[in-house]
Design a protein around this nucleic acid. Structure first.
Lengths: 130, 130
DNA sequence: TACAAAATGTTAGATCTTCTAACATCTAAT
DNA sequence: ATTAGATGTTAGAAGATCTAACATTTTGTA
């Protein structure tokens, strides 16, 4: 399945093709990139080139939007998906010692001002989840 | 398997992508079309758009040429292939919607099927980043 | 060898496609 | 009613592809 994953992430489609396959406008596709939901590569001439994975995500975004979920919600969904993926890939998590907690708090707190409660929750989940 | 065949014939790649995937020049690709070995469609702006089948054939042509077979020989080979295909009973045609195409592409692109291991090697891996 | 044909390279000018950036419009949430 | 979110629209620039012609290289054969 390694080769398969490689093919799915090859950047081979120009935006015109993606527009037709997803029924999205160029404006929308670029906007979702701006929202960091997809990360198309660029060719030598700075043209965006999309993968099958990108198209999958765009179609999922369409579904979420049709279900009334907004960008913030969709972003969160993909954050969670990312966490789940990392969980399966990584070896079993070890419990944090008090020392670990102190070190994390020290580095995290410095950049935490100005974050919304929602963002703080995100940090909590990352660091204090068993 | 009829549906699959139709999916593989969807015109989704511009010539630039085909050049990278096959390591052929635009001149060569257009020449092989002139020789009626492939039949790419055109988009609304008259740009050639290629299918997975087209890419398969182009990679096969590369192999034949590497084996010392010239255009005349390659043409004959494809004539014979065409005859063989016609020997088989053809089921009724069925048209695909755009939605079908979208669903299909991801599963389809993963296996540039029908390719020999040699053909797969011909794929220009350097362009399939990561 | 020499010549003709085959296969590919190269170029120019036109047209299509995509880019960025800005401003406009419409919708949803406060 | 106002703000923020989401998308539309436009202009000008630059990249990509088109056709058509001529050039060069390779191959087959008289």
């Amino acid at each position: 399945m390694r080769e398969k994953e490689l093919r799915r992430s090859m950047s081979v489609f120009p935006i015109g093709t993606v527009m037709k396959l997803t029924d999205l406008t160029a404006r929308q596709i670029r906007y979702y990139e701006e929202q960091e939901l997809i990360y198309p590569e660029r060719n030598e001439g700075n043209r965006r080139m999309y993968s099958l994975n990108d198209i999958d995500v765009l179609l999922e975004i369409k579904d979420y939007l049709a279900d009334g979920i907004n960008m913030a919600g969709i972003k969160r969904i993909y954050e969670l998906k990312e966490l789940e993926k990392n969980e399966k890939t990584k070896p079993p998590e070890k419990n944090l010692t008090d020392d670990d907690v102190r070190r994390i708090l020290h580095s995290e707190f410095l950049s935490i001002s100005g974050l919304s409660p929602k963002d703080k929750n995100k940090l909590n989940q990352q660091h204090f989840k068993q």
